[in-house]
Design a protein around this nucleic acid. Structure first.
Lengths: 355, 355
DNA sequence: TCAGCCAATTTGATTGATCAAATGGCCGAT
DNA sequence: ATCGGCCATTTGATCAATCAAATTGGCTGA
């Protein structure tokens, strides 16, 4: 009979029980944790020591009652779609959780199948004061979420720029806090890198038109090639539109290799992995650069454009905390972060690759 | 000046304000939500209507104060490792979050780089009464987490069986609530399926020895082959050990094809994707079955063994709630769930495949 | 007729922390 | 000697709900 449940054996320490032990009042204990500068060094030490001894931790609920802060940020967890591409959001979420902890906050998940369902979640979570703010992802046209949260005065910040209904990325009428990664800058960087390696016939393996993110990544490649002197018809013949996926990528790359391509800029690592395998099957001549720098890409030695997710998370949280601290609705200037190309074996100069 | 922040414009409805409006007392409002059977139908309706009108939602914090329940379950979010394999835990987490919501609970994330760090998180989260219970994953040898939580009387439940230090899966001295998927049953099912298709030279593409999960999956294949009459030396020659990954998978499959294999049971979808591409490169003759039924596998038409994650989540939550409701430390019999083979193009009978 | 009982509803107390205001001690200035 | 002012600390009130005990009123049966 040694494994008895010690539930409630010792009543959980409270601000009062700690105060009693330390020989001070409740408020002094509270101050030791919240406003240490108000206490005399000796008193502070005494109280902190007692806190240490008893293992006292403030009750989240009681604290929240008085301060009207839950210390929790909500994040919508989507159903898994694509195993590889999903890694980006996984990484984002991990960074978010870790960074939130560093700032004494926590991340709580919710799910929603539609915008309406998500608004219902907003409503529940905020009315119950379960969370203080939201971090939104997966922006889309006519996104009703910003409006709802703004109207209700709930702090939030978005990873992804607001796309207005005509597909341009004009500012939304409600200007809210958002951060995004400059996809065009990423593919442009990749394309320049391949140009420097001596490649001239640089193809793009991208998604079908209509995806904002995808179109933007294509643009970075196209503009860079244009600047390097590749004419429009030639660019057209080096472009391709594929649903995301490894197989799509290798099929497209095979065709483009036949058309004379010697290097590939891809809209995702999935496509790039496929393209890389096609290149290797064809003798290994040809360079490939992916997008997102997923662990899989790293493992395969695939060059890839890395999104600065830690920065994005830092900015998003910073913005949300500023709003919580009463900053006006106007967020610190939203901006595009520049991604960074990570060069690996798939795009290193090999013998005979020079122009 | 239309976009003013309406913060606090109307004071948030409380149990008292709703009571006033409905012409009843606070407690009656509380009962309407928590013990509706105690109220007269007419009173109940009146109160519920008022709640609806005002959009009242109970304050999570105040509720938690009195009930000593946070309504939150904690889950450790790991850093992303493998883009494809990670999808399993992603799916698990999504299912967990969705199912928790259905039961009026929420999932909160925490991170930890080591067991010690995780124990510290346990301590903080439980002392602050931020969470009610934990769902643990990634079990390993000499896992100290069960012990800590048991000693502290914190409800928890584990996805993954307890591995004792000698590598067997003997019961831990502290018997706790766990659920796991019978990997051997999965690979056995896959192997039988391939036998039925007429294959006789069925290879296994698995991980190096030492991973419990991996060894178990190998066992299911080996035992089924043995039962079908394949002798040990032959089995040995059809076995392979690979670090997880697409490339590893295709390399191994190429070698095994040369050794006469006509079908492949794989320890993961990553390996299977690689094996499948090797098979296709070699003319498309040969069947492949993966493990985990990731979205990528589905997209590629790869047969795969699907883990019943929804069931696992349901069981884990059920167990945790039972513990919260004061059930003794003894959990409902822990068990192994049987995975289900999903047959797709990669292992369908094609002309000429029959023995 | 009225005690007794039951069901429906109300009142009082409590949860654990923090805010706001009050207290006590000590200093220098009047 | 006395008083305003300052500092460190304490006391009282409050956040929004629920538990536990008290109340109300209707109905039954001796």
């Amino acid at each position: 009979m040694s494994g008895e449940v010690p539930l409630g054996a010792v009543p959980r320490p409270t601000v009062s029980s700690v105060a009693l032990l330390a020989g001070v009042s409740r408020q002094t204990v509270s101050n030791a944790l919240n406003n240490p500068e108000r206490l005399q060094p000796a008193t502070l030490k005494k109280v902190l020591d007692t806190i240490e001894e008893t293992g006292y931790v403030r009750s989240a609920a009681a604290r929240q009652m008085r301060t009207a802060r839950s210390g929790v940020i909500a994040y919508r967890l989507d159903r898994v779609r694509d195993g590889i591409g999903g890694a980006v959001l996984d990484t984002f979420l991990h960074a978010l959780s870790a960074e939130a902890e560093r700032r004494d906050y926590r991340v709580m998940l919710y799910t929603a199948d539609s915008d309406e369902a998500e608004l219902r979640q907003f409503s529940r979570l905020t009315r119950a004061r379960t969370v203080d703010a939201f971090i939104l992802i997966e922006t889309h046209r006519d996104d009703v979420r910003y409006g709802w949260l703004s109207e209700h005065g709930i702090p939030f910040s978005v990873f992804g720029r607001p796309w207005s209904s005509d597909g341009t990325n004009h500012q939304h009428s409600l200007n809210h806090a958002w951060i995004d990664v400059d996809g065009a800058a990423g593919t442009a960087q990749a394309t320049r890198h391949l140009l420097e390696l001596g490649h001239r016939e640089i193809a793009f393996v991208g998604w079908p038109h209509g995806s904002e993110t995808g179109d933007e990544r294509r643009r970075g490649w196209a503009e860079t090639l244009a600047r390097a002197g590749t004419d429009a018809p030639r660019r057209q013949s080096l472009d391709s539109w594929q649903p995301d996926g490894i197989l799509s990528g290798s099929n497209a790359a095979r065709r483009l290799l036949d058309a004379g391509a010697t290097a590939f800029v891809c809209a995702s690592d999935s496509l790039a992995i496929g393209a890389y395998s096609a290149v290797q099957a064809a003798g290994g001549q040809g360079a490939v650069v992916g997008f997102d720098d997923t662990p899989t890409a790293a493992a395969l030695g695939l060059s890839s454009v890395r999104q600065p997710l830690d920065e994005a998370v830092g900015w998003a949280l910073g913005s949300v905390f500023a709003q919580l601290d009463g900053a006006p609705g106007v967020p610190g200037e939203p901006s595009l972060l520049t991604p960074q190309l990570v060069v690996r074996a798939s795009s290193r100069p090999v013998r005979g690759t020079t122009a």
